[in-house]
Design a protein around this nucleic acid. Structure first.
Lengths: 102, 102
DNA sequence: TAAATATATCGATAATTCTCGATATATAGA
DNA sequence: TCTATATATCGAGAATTATCGATATATTTA
């Protein structure tokens, strides 16, 4: 999907709220901001909802919705392992967005 | 002023609404989207409020407020000539913002 | 100085977003 | 299968934003 005004505005909406921008920043360096996983020993697929929720200090439902919105507009990529959902940055989409702005 | 979470969120708010994102896009190439000025013969300082307002099709007060907000967070630079206010993109700030995101 | 023009600000209502707790769903383990 | 854990979805009230018309301010010109 290529960048356009409509999608850019949806991305902008995700980036218009402090907690969401903060999450995107944390996910730049997961190992620096989140505890290591007990099952998975890496952050290749990002961070699970619970860790992000605890760090953000908002309710589970709020964070779940935020992450779903960010995934929907492409800012994040979701990978499910069993009962966990891992979220990581979609660097390609973010690059497309920044190129659209410039 | 250097980029930080708070400012990035303010910028995100400006970029969370269709008309504002559209304005930022139009201002990439003013000569392509707006009529030439009768007094000034160039777009060096950008485009006046009236032209932007007519092109956007929203009320004068709405556009004036939008432009003021975008100027306040640094996305636009305002230059006044007599009774006109000209707005142009602040490429440096936009670059800082994109680097923050990446 | 009076009128016209361009922009900014104010006050208000409608629409959207924020954020929560409650509850539903899905998976894993006893 | 029953229970615990992780995540998603729903419904609601509070807060914020969208957008307008009216009006104020500033500048230019007659």
């Amino acid at each position: 999907m290529c960048m356009n005004l409509k999608l850019a505005t949806e991305i902008g909406k995700c980036l218009s709220n402090n907690p969401r921008v903060q999450i995107l920043e944390w996910l730049k360096e997961p190992e620096k901001h989140f505890p290591p996983h007990e099952t998975l020993k890496h952050f290749n697929d990002g961070v699970c909802v619970t860790y992000i929720q605890e760090k953000a200090g908002l309710s589970q439902s709020t964070i779940s919705t935020y992450l779903a919105n960010m995934e929907k507009c492409g800012l994040l990529i979701i990978t499910r392992h069993g009962k966990w959902s891992y979220f990581k940055r979609n660097e390609e989409l973010i690059r497309q967005y920044t190129e659209f702005l410039l």
